[in-house]
């Protein structure tokens, strides 16, 4: 099986890595770059725990081949905070108690980040629609929705 040498930018840092054809972006992030904030909950595009931003848009990194990310700009949960300053969403998740086990949290944050970037003042329904691909088994979603509303100001 072939390997491919790819370059990509992850959380602002340029990376050059060799990846096997069948590696997913999720595997690359977690197993090669040790960015374990991004979670694997199903490997099938269903749970959203693996959501990252690929060129600014949220994708299920379990359904993107690592080689497909050649040349791309990737943002994971580890890249949300800047200069020690939390993203307003991260702060809102803390303040609103939107975190329980925390396993869905990274994916939720990135889906929500993308939502607020394309729609800075979403309605509650728009928030719920944007997060429908992020399963949470702990919170019942209410506080997550509230946190996104709060971060939107």
């Amino acid at each position: 099986m072939a390997t491919h040498s790819i370059t990509l930018t992850v959380n602002g840092a340029k990376e050059q890595v060799d990846v096997a054809s069948n590696w997913t972006l999720l595997q690359l992030l977690r197993d090669r770059l040790a960015l374990t904030g991004t979670k694997n909950g199903c490997s099938a595009g269903e749970c959203g725990a693996c959501t990252v931003l690929l060129n600014g848009e949220p994708v299920n990194s379990c359904l993107v081949l690592a080689v497909e990310a050649d040349g791309a700009n990737v943002v994971t949960v580890e890249g949300l905070a800047h200069d020690g300053q939390l993203d307003p969403l991260q702060q809102a998740f803390i303040d609103e108690g939107a975190v329980q086990c925390g396993f869905c949290t990274p994916g939720m944050l990135l889906s929500a980040r993308a939502l607020l970037t394309r729609n800075p003042h979403p309605s509650e329904r728009e928030i719920r629609q944007a997060l429908v691909g992020n399963l949470c088994r702990c919170t019942g979603y209410a506080r997550i929705v509230r946190a996104v509303q709060k971060a939107a100001g």
Partner: peptide
């Protein structure tokens, strides 16, 4: 179709 993330791909 599916979810927002899936629809991006």
């Amino acid at each position: 179709v599916a979810s927002y993330q899936v629809r991006n791909r």
